[in-house]
Design a binder for these strands. Sequence first.
DNA 1: CTGAAAGCGCTTACAG
DNA 2: CTGAAAGCGCTTACAG
Lengths: 355, 355
Amino acid sequence: MTSAKEPILRDVAAMASVSIKTASRVLNDDPRVAPATRENVRAAMLELGYRPDPAARSLRAGRDLSVGVVVENIGDVFVAALVARIEARLSDAGYQVLITSSHRDPLRERAIVQDFQQRRCAGVIVMPSSETSLVGLRLGTMPVVFVDRVGEFPGSRSVVSDDYALARLATQHLIDHGHRRIAILSDSQKVPTTRDRHAGFQRAMADAGHPVDRALVRDECLDESFVRNAVAELFALETPPTALVATNTRLSLGAVPALHLVQRTETALLAFGDFPMAESLTPAVTVIDHSPHRLGQVAADTLLDRLRGDGTSVETSPIVVPAQLIARGSGELPPRPTAGDSRASVTVDTAGGHT
Amino acid sequence: MTSAKEPILRDVAAMASVSIKTASRVLNDDPRVAPATRENVRAAMLELGYRPDPAARSLRAGRDLSVGVVVENIGDVFVAALVARIEARLSDAGYQVLITSSHRDPLRERAIVQDFQQRRCAGVIVMPSSETSLVGLRLGTMPVVFVDRVGEFPGSRSVVSDDYALARLATQHLIDHGHRRIAILSDSQKVPTTRDRHAGFQRAMADAGHPVDRALVRDECLDESFVRNAVAELFALETPPTALVATNTRLSLGAVPALHLVQRTETALLAFGDFPMAESLTPAVTVIDHSPHRLGQVAADTLLDRLRGDGTSVETSPIVVPAQLIARGSGELPPRPTAGDSRASVTVDTAGGHT
DNA sequence: CTGAAAGCGCTTACAG
DNA sequence: CTGAAAGCGCTTACAG
């Protein structure tokens, strides 16, 4: 321990021969300081290697240069990409980023957000487990931005993809390629995003006049093992689907190996979430790229706006971030072209549909 | 604003008719409190919905229930998995986790760690950009654990894979399958892990008596675009490699599309880092699975040990977390079986090697 | 087993 | 433009 004690503001003030208050003013870029004084204080700070104490600062000031981020699971590839962008933006803006996973436990989620407020975070960005997960929480004036899923909180803003439209687009794409027995794999319908994606799917099917077989609707797929089971069951059906919509990145990453496992890679696949291997698979995977980077960027910028904000614009409607369909092959497969299965003809037969 | 003011410890003390100090003792599980008093105070806390103020606490106590984590880039899939496990363990243990990306900027890395200390973090876990990145920093008694890469700091501990042995194993595996023109793709050799992987590669080649063609050693591959270039150049060589070692997850994810792009999927590939699609590709990808989950788990546990620690065990040798080779096909391809290239015979010719 | 005082390092009103 | 006082909410010695 050769290190001297950390310098504190008093030391800076002493060295610059000013009061501690003036030193504090310089620290906070208060304009009411004489230029010469400012320079003196700055020089002293530099010479002493002074760094302000965030705890003291936040205790007294009642706010802290940190932002809390609550996501479902930081280990998810989609989430990691989202968080990476959020973190980059916010730390560039001088905020310390606190990241915690909720693991979709609403109580945990509430507790985390409450703790962030307790820590005087300047704001929070939340990927909510349900619309109402934060309802009723006392957060004072701390701005809340929801990301990827619409959330409900007074004065909050949500940054999302147009899940309904994208699911409809995806489903329509498969319908356009002749499919009518289309299965949908999704997460729990408790999640707003998931619900909207189901609605878009249903709408496209209804518009095409295709019935939706309840057996082809598989929600509550929480991870790859659920997907594997669901896919196995789908292809054990008397009339299996000819196409599949996977409604999030995690499920898309599960669907590909699952189709391989049951040797049904001729099944059309439309996957939400782009991923690095999508182009290299056989067939290459058609995706809806609802860019996590863009979502993260917009969410961070929205929060920064509120933090700088005059508080004037109290716009609360969701911000919709654009996404696109990238056709690579799997989504353009016709109904069961290579099926060594007698039922294939049935499907092909009806593929024209009655629009 | 219907919400009453947040209760503070004074309110709790008043309600329980004790001094603020006694309330504080209950909060900190100090045993020197009469059981009846303790119950009274606890009841008051519950009734008021009291939550302690972390800023005040840490300012006075000089420590905080938070742990700082510095990684290269939270958006990297390997890193995300690593961080997910660290976060899960530490938040279960009651710590708030602060995550920041260094983007491999040593100055930034030092500044972040210094800031964590400033914030009175109980400890830090660092994925260092180089061994010496923290050398000379004044961190007081804050424990430091390095993860994935060996780092240098007084009293610190590193949790790593045996990069040397794994790279040797990977290379040997390819040699065993008849290869001698083996290319290696890697990150910058400034990163300790990368250096060790190169050393293992060189050793395996030397042991087999195979010369290492300098043109087949491609370091400084920072992301997928570098990999794409490197692979293109490798296969533009007069005598291209018959096998490839990709030395980290990011590069592995880049190598597959790159091989597809140059239509060289018959090239043997041994990839560091398992990934979801590895089994579904053609050929399926043989990987070294140096589990990020296990690394994260051990790193978190190591830090928790130090935090609870009597400070007695000042073991500083690196902890090596086991990893395994998962053979799936790409690593077992013979030298250019399907090559429509006259030079293929040359390679096959020498494949027996002189051991 | 319990308490009154002081203070962690800053910033907030309030003066001048 | 500058400063002396008070205090953010808690915990640290020091007493009893």
